[in-house]
Design a protein around this nucleic acid. Sequence first.
DNA 1: GATGAATGAGTGTTCATTCAT
DNA 2: GATGAATGAACACTCATTCAT
Lengths: 204, 204, 204, 204
Amino acid sequence: MPPRRQVPETKRRVPRQARSAETVALILEASAQILEARGLAGFTTNAVAERAGVSVGTLYQYFDDKRAILVALARQEVEATLTELRKATTAPEEATVEGRARAAVRAIVNGFRGRLRARKAVVQAVLAQGSGVEVMAPVAAFIAAQPRLLLPAFTDVQLFVLSRALLGTIRAAVLEEQPFFRSRAFEDELVRLIAGYFRAIIAT
Amino acid sequence: MPPRRQVPETKRRVPRQARSAETVALILEASAQILEARGLAGFTTNAVAERAGVSVGTLYQYFDDKRAILVALARQEVEATLTELRKATTAPEEATVEGRARAAVRAIVNGFRGRLRARKAVVQAVLAQGSGVEVMAPVAAFIAAQPRLLLPAFTDVQLFVLSRALLGTIRAAVLEEQPFFRSRAFEDELVRLIAGYFRAIIAT
Amino acid sequence: MPPRRQVPETKRRVPRQARSAETVALILEASAQILEARGLAGFTTNAVAERAGVSVGTLYQYFDDKRAILVALARQEVEATLTELRKATTAPEEATVEGRARAAVRAIVNGFRGRLRARKAVVQAVLAQGSGVEVMAPVAAFIAAQPRLLLPAFTDVQLFVLSRALLGTIRAAVLEEQPFFRSRAFEDELVRLIAGYFRAIIAT
Amino acid sequence: MPPRRQVPETKRRVPRQARSAETVALILEASAQILEARGLAGFTTNAVAERAGVSVGTLYQYFDDKRAILVALARQEVEATLTELRKATTAPEEATVEGRARAAVRAIVNGFRGRLRARKAVVQAVLAQGSGVEVMAPVAAFIAAQPRLLLPAFTDVQLFVLSRALLGTIRAAVLEEQPFFRSRAFEDELVRLIAGYFRAIIAT
DNA sequence: GATGAATGAGTGTTCATTCAT
DNA sequence: GATGAATGAACACTCATTCAT
């Protein structure tokens, strides 16, 4: 005989005050730490609350669900990486295909610095739930926003392959803990992969 | 899967008799079906046993763990795909770079034919556990075994990027349930990606 | 309502000022609405406070307990029904047994007009707690106060049976949400029941 | 991220074996005891399991829900009372209206012997859930099955009033713990109530 | 070897109540 | 007096795993 919520009606409180925003940040940070230290399996609401130094009740004041925490975390990571990417790809000096590719590769690889396990868990969890599309939306927006001079008339499939080949390879290196992950050689190959694909498309 | 003992072997008994092998196959098939129909969340030992028409006890006679079932399933899939790949890449008629790339792409994509949800779940689960490396070993072996004539003087990093870019993109398409997954356009782009990278390496 | 301290008073403060009485009324009205709309399960202090437009804190300023709200609500309803009953049974024109019985039946059934769900919930809740006797006291007082001319030499047991048969049947109709609850047929039968009992007593 | 039951598909085990039936009986008995001792509020699945000397898991092997336990208990009680009633009302010697009414009153009053609190709780709980109709079905069936000689052409409303007036009065006496509950005087009045109603109907 | 009833630690989530502001 | 963020005990329920038969 569970609570049996009839008409949910009221949404979870949106943090408006400074104190609240702080609490939310605390919870997200705690979540990342738990994920990093114990993986997805150890990511329990009680563990998160304890680590964040708040009660479970507080946690549920700000998040509808355990899922919601993961989604928020994912969004935060995506946003951070996109910010890096934006910064990197708008630098005027990187005008060549290789130059831009290298800037992008670096931004992403650097984005993966630290909290690898947490990132992995977040990615897994978000994919495991249906929330993938929701979280990936900003990425798609970012890609679509690229000046068409550089990505001349790319199809959706091409954009997909381009982005996932890059991200997928980096993720694999992270997950498999490849020693060359942060090496120049790895960076070079990624640039070659991207630039090669670019050239192949244009050549058609 | 809570307690998770030390370092468990994957299979408890090696099935020697026909009856046993049959039971194991039954369990794996049932697992794939459950995974396909209800996803990872619905993949419970009781559900698998019921579907397989055996008791949970029997299931535990052949598998140490719930984990072990997933690992066995993953191994089976990898093996099947590698077999396809071997067949595809040794066909004498595929002599061009594009021809061989396309053969490989097709073999892998076809490997993912049917039971996408099951595959997705298996991939997720295996990644979520530490078993990734274990399962990926045959893949590495396969790559290493390629005649150096075709992959002339490729470095390890290059082989890594080559394989992971391809597998990573396909995996992303599966996990994100992209509608173009089995389209010709997607195949074309993958071929272009691989061939472009090949050309870029050789051009150096 | 877990801890449930010793023997709590029902109201914390007797509202002396207009403002306070208003707040109490607001809370009771909100409670009735919530009960009506979401049933006993949806009757949470937070929901009530929100609906009433006050904070939970304020709510606890006027009521010791969640229980106390329900009791106050029940008392209010009982009082209202008794007022109706008093009015109905003192009308001089209803001189026959049937006439008086019908007047009483109508007063009670009308008392249950509207907010059936709320009433049902209140009855349930009050019964579920030990507060039944407390709430029923005014009813007993009312019955005892009837002029002995009309209820000539009725024993206590007879008064009990008379009142409970009537109230119990009506309550059952409410709780079971019988469609004929407000029909003339139902009223007729209740009158018959009461009048029949009356006659049977007198006949002895 | 709760279990999220996708497709319930499999029903709870129906006890087929002797051992199982015993366990079910154990659980029901424990439930009645808990209800009697601690009321509806103390009726938790863990408490029941502990009292029954089984684990919660076992409990859930036989009952879908906490609700289901209550429903089963209610059905058991109803069935027992009906059995008594059937026995009482088919005795050939009770041919008069008063005779049959008295037999019925006695059967029901005796049915309320012992475990009053448990009964009360069960009734409340079942009514609070939507299960009332389900549980009451056998009662309706019983009433409908009465020979029309005795209940000549009673309408549904009349049957409702007849049964609820009787049951409601008895229940009120139980809930209010009236000292005269098992007295002859009370029985006499109930008989009078029923017989009077009967006569009033027939007289029309 | 096979069975499946039993286990029980562990999980997500709720909500009455408090108290610093 | 009023507020509402925070609390945390408590609950229903699941499911991997065991072991007596």
